[in-house]
C-alpha cells in the first residue's frame, strides 16, 4: 500500500521537474541572447550598413541584413500566399466532395512538412548553376517560398477545416458558386486564422538560414533590385560569429537579438489574432 503512494509522489516531483526544466530552458535561451547581444545593440547598429566589409570591418551595423531579411521574407510570404491560399481553398472546396482526394492531398503535404530547408537550398542552387543564375534576392525568394508553402497550406487548411460545413451549404443554397463560397464566405469567415497562418510562415521564412545560404548570397549593401544578392539576419549571425574580430562578433550577437525580437513579436501577434478568431467564429 505504501509503495504505490510513494511512487506516485516521487513521479509527480520528477514530472514537475521535467515541465519546469522546459520553461527554464526557454528562459535561459532568451536571457543568454539578450545579455550577450543587448549591450552591442545601438541606434548605429540598426541604422548603418557594415563599413570595410562585414567580416573584417569594425565599423557599421546590420541594416543590410535587417532590410535584406524583410525583403526576402515579405517576398517569399507573398509568393507563397499567391499559391498557398488557393491551394488550401481547393482542398476544402473542390476536393472536399471527394473525401479521398482531400485526404491524399493532406497526406502528401504532411510528408513534405518536414523536408529540411537545406534540401530546398541545395536543389535550388544546382538549378541556378544549370540556368547560369547568380545568387540573388529573387532566387532566395523563390526557394524560401517553396520551402514555406507546405507549412502555410496546411496551417490555412486547418483553419478552413474548422468552418462548419453548414456555412458552405447555406452559401450554396443561396445560389453562390463554389468560387464565390470559397472567397466570400470561407476566406472572410476565417480571415484572422489565415493571417495567423501567414504570420507563422513569415516567421519561418525570416528565421531560416539553410535555404538562403546557397541562393541569396551575402553582401554589405542593401539590394536595390531583385537580381542583386542580399544579406539576411540568420546569415549575418552565422558568418559574423566566426570572425576573429570582437566588434564583428558583436554585430552577430546584436543581429541575434533583433531576429529573436522579431520572432517573439510575430509569435505574440499570431496568438492574439487566433484568440480573436475563436471569438468571432460562427458556430452551428
Amino acid at each position: 500500500m505504501k509503495t504505490k503512494e510513494a511512487e506516485e509522489r516521487v513521479m509527480l516531483w520528477i514530472m514537475r521537474f521535467a515541465a519546469l526544466s522546459i520553461v527554464l530552458v526557454l528562459g535561459l535561451i532568451i536571457l543568454s541572447i539578450l545579455i550577450r547581444g543587448l549591450p552591442s545593440l545601438s541606434w548605429d547598429m540598426i541604422s548603418q550598413i557594415p563599413k570595410g566589409g562585414f567580416y573584417y570591418g569594425k565599423e557599421g551595423g546590420i541594416l543590410n541584413a535587417i532590410i535584406g531579411s524583410l525583403y526576402l521574407s515579405a517576398g517569399a510570404t507573398l509568393l507563397a500566399m499567391i499559391i498557398g491560399i488557393p491551394a488550401a481553398l481547393y482542398i476544402n472546396v473542390y476536393a472536399a466532395r471527394h473525401d479521398r482526394m482531400a485526404a491524399a492531398a493532406r497526406f502528401f503535404l504532411d510528408l513534405l512538412w518536414g523536408v529540411p530547408s537545406i534540401v530546398y537550398g541545395a536543389f535550388a542552387f544546382s538549378m541556378m548553376i544549370l540556368l547560369g543564375m547568380r545568387t540573388s534576392l529573387l532566387a532566395g525568394i523563390v526557394t524560401v517560398a517553396l520551402f514555406i508553402l507546405p507549412i502555410m497550406i496546411r496551417a490555412i487548411d486547418e483553419v478552413l477545416r474548422s468552418v462548419s460545413p453548414g456555412l458552405s451549404e447555406a452559401s450554396y443554397a443561396l445560389g453562390a458558386t463554389r468560387t464565390q463560397t470559397a472567397f466570400r464566405v470561407l476566406v472572410k469567415q476565417t480571415m484572422p486564422g489565415i493571417i495567423t497562418a501567414i504570420l507563422l510562415s513569415f516567421g519561418r521564412a525570416i528565421g531560416d538560414a539553410a535555404a538562403v545560404l546557397f541562393t541569396t548570397g551575402y553582401t554589405d549593401h542593401i539590394p536595390t533590385s531583385p537580381d542583386q544578392p542580399a544579406a539576411t539576419l540568420p546569415l549575418a549571425i552565422f558568418f559574423q560569429l566566426s570572425s576573429p574580430i570582437p566588434e564583428v562578433r558583436d554585430r552577430a550577437f546584436a543581429a541575434a537579438v533583433v531576429l529573436t525580437l522579431i520572432i517573439l513579436i510575430i509569435s505574440l501577434l499570431a496568438r492574439w489574432l487566433s484568440h480573436k478568431y475563436e471569438k468571432r467564429r460562427i458556430k452551428f
Binding site: 530552458v25 543568454s32 528565421g207 538560414a209
Partner: peptide, 24 residues
C-alpha cells in the same frame, strides 16, 4: 500557460539556437 511557451520554442530560428549553443 504552457502553450505559448511551446509555440515560442518552436518558432525560435535555428541560428539563434546555435548562438545559444555557443554561449551556453
Amino acid at each position: 500557460l504552457m502553450h505559448p511557451i511551446i509555440d515560442i520554442l518552436a518558432g525560435i530560428p535555428s541560428v539563434v539556437y546555435g548562438v545559444w549553443g555557443i554561449l551556453v
